[in-house]
């Protein structure tokens, strides 16, 4: 049997062209990734102590890591200086300011997922008259004045209450936000879950 190749080329060459065409239509786009609202990174944390007796007496302590995951070091910008005997409510501003044009409020996200988050604290022993002691990082059942709870009635710590003790200079105040997905219970501790932030400030009371 002799095959006429020109004929078979006419027959099957068309298939080949089709195949070639089909497989090369996938070409060419130069898309840029879309702008992202970064919800993961925290760059700025401010501790806001508001005097319960005087709403104008606000003590702010800032910590900043301006490049987020980059290697630039974290900076603790302020010391905490409270008035002896005064009672404060501690709240936070937790932001992602990587893109100055679009600052993201991470605090809102934490509020939405408060059943997965808890704040823990440690501080110079007896710096406060309430809570007493040195905080609940070393022992989760130690005294601490959480004034909020999640849906499971477990403490969160987005608001806490503090009454400053006697004068103190150069003490420490450490605030830690733990992320405890599927882990947070009434007995979970500082050692459960992962860390969203862990910041230590100088504490003065005068």
């Amino acid at each position: 049997m002799k095959i006429n190749l020109l004929d078979s080329l006419k027959k099957y060459g068309l298939y080949m062209l089709l195949i070639t065409a089909v497989f090369l239509t996938a070409c060419g786009d130069d898309d840029e990734p879309e702008v992202v609202n970064e919800v993961e990174v925290i760059t700025d944390v401010t501790l806001v102590f508001t005097n319960t007796a005087d709403a104008n007496d606000v003590v702010r302590a800032r910590a900043q890591d301006p490049d987020g995951e980059g290697v630039q070091e974290l900076a603790i910008l302020d010391q905490i200086t409270l008035t002896a005997g005064a009672t404060y409510t501690l709240t936070y501003e937790i932001l992602n300011a990587l893109d100055p044009a679009d600052v993201e409020d991470i605090g809102e996200e934490i509020l939405e997922e408060d059943d997965e988050h808890q704040f823990f604290f440690s501080f110079s022993t007896d710096a406060f008259t309430s809570p007493e002691g040195n905080g609940n990082i070393d022992n989760a059942s130690d005294e601490l004045n959480y004034t909020d709870t999640d849906d499971n009635q477990n403490p969160v710590g987005l608001t806490t209450s503090w009454t400053a003790g006697a004068a103190l200079t150069g003490g420490t105040f450490r605030a830690v936000l733990k992320h405890q997905p599927d882990v947070k219970t009434s007995t979970s501790t500082f050692n459960d879950g992962d860390t969203d932030f862990d910041l230590t400030f100088v504490l003065n009371i005068q």
Partner: peptide, 23 residues
Amino acid sequence: QYFYQNNDNNPGTGTTPFIPNYN
């Protein structure tokens, strides 16, 4: 041989892409 690859990030991750788009 001709080889072509096109990698695209789909939006909606809420985080800056770890790998860029490339061709």
